[in-house]
Computed example of a mutant assay.
Amino acid sequence: MTTGWAWIMLILSGAVDVAWAFAMKKADGFRDPPWALASAVLLVVFVVLLVKALDVLPLGTAYAVWTGIGAAGSVLVGILVFGEPATAMRLTCIALVLAGIIGLKTAG
């Protein structure tokens, strides 16, 4: 696998991680079986994609980028879907996470 494909898989894994967090919230502590099943499937998918990406990418950078995508994406889903507060401080912190991701990617 090329480095480019590994980055694509890593980004997809981060996006699926966000979908997993959304499904876990909707599963309501596994009291909603369809959402619980969706969360289990999404968990497997994001782990498989992450493992594939880690075959090529450096662990420290890849894991930090993946975690940042998941964290920032989950905060945005919380704001957009679940009505969580979009304060200036929260948005600034998301921007800092994204700046860190970009810094790690460009630093090699």
Rank of each mutant, 00 (worst) to 15 (best):
1 M>W: 11
2 T>Q: 06
2 T>S: 15
3 T>L: 13
3 T>Y: 12
4 G>D: 06
4 G>K: 05
5 W>D: 09
5 W>T: 11
5 W>V: 14
6 A>Y: 13
7 W>V: 07
8 I>K: 15
8 I>G: 09
8 I>R: 11
9 M>I: 09
9 M>P: 01
10 L>I: 11
11 I>E: 15
12 L>C: 15
13 S>K: 02
15 A>W: 00
17 D>Q: 14
18 V>C: 15
18 V>Y: 01
23 A>K: 02
24 M>Q: 04
27 A>N: 03
27 A>D: 01
28 D>Q: 15
30 F>A: 00
32 D>W: 15
35 W>P: 13
36 A>V: 05
36 A>E: 07
36 A>D: 03
39 S>K: 03
39 S>D: 04
39 S>M: 12
41 V>D: 02
41 V>A: 05
42 L>I: 02
43 L>I: 01
43 L>V: 03
43 L>E: 00
43 L>R: 10
44 V>T: 14
44 V>G: 05
45 V>F: 07
46 F>H: 11
49 L>A: 09
49 L>D: 03
50 L>Y: 13
50 L>S: 06
50 L>R: 05
51 V>D: 07
52 K>M: 13
55 D>Q: 10
55 D>I: 12
57 L>H: 06
57 L>R: 07
58 P>H: 04
59 L>C: 10
61 T>F: 03
61 T>S: 13
61 T>L: 12
62 A>L: 06
62 A>N: 08
62 A>V: 03
62 A>Q: 08
63 Y>F: 14
64 A>C: 13
66 W>V: 05
67 T>G: 10
69 I>A: 07
71 A>T: 15
72 A>F: 02
76 L>Y: 10
77 V>L: 11
79 I>G: 04
79 I>C: 11
80 L>K: 11
80 L>S: 14
84 E>Q: 15
84 E>S: 12
84 E>D: 15
85 P>Q: 07
85 P>Y: 00
86 A>R: 14
86 A>C: 07
89 M>L: 15
89 M>C: 01
89 M>G: 11
90 R>K: 10
91 L>E: 00
93 C>V: 09
94 I>K: 05
95 A>K: 05
96 L>G: 05
96 L>H: 06
99 A>Y: 03
99 A>I: 00
99 A>M: 01
99 A>F: 00
100 G>L: 02
100 G>V: 03
101 I>F: 01
101 I>S: 00
101 I>M: 09
104 L>G: 01
104 L>R: 04
106 T>N: 02
106 T>A: 08
107 A>W: 07
107 A>E: 12
107 A>V: 04
107 A>D: 03
108 G>L: 03
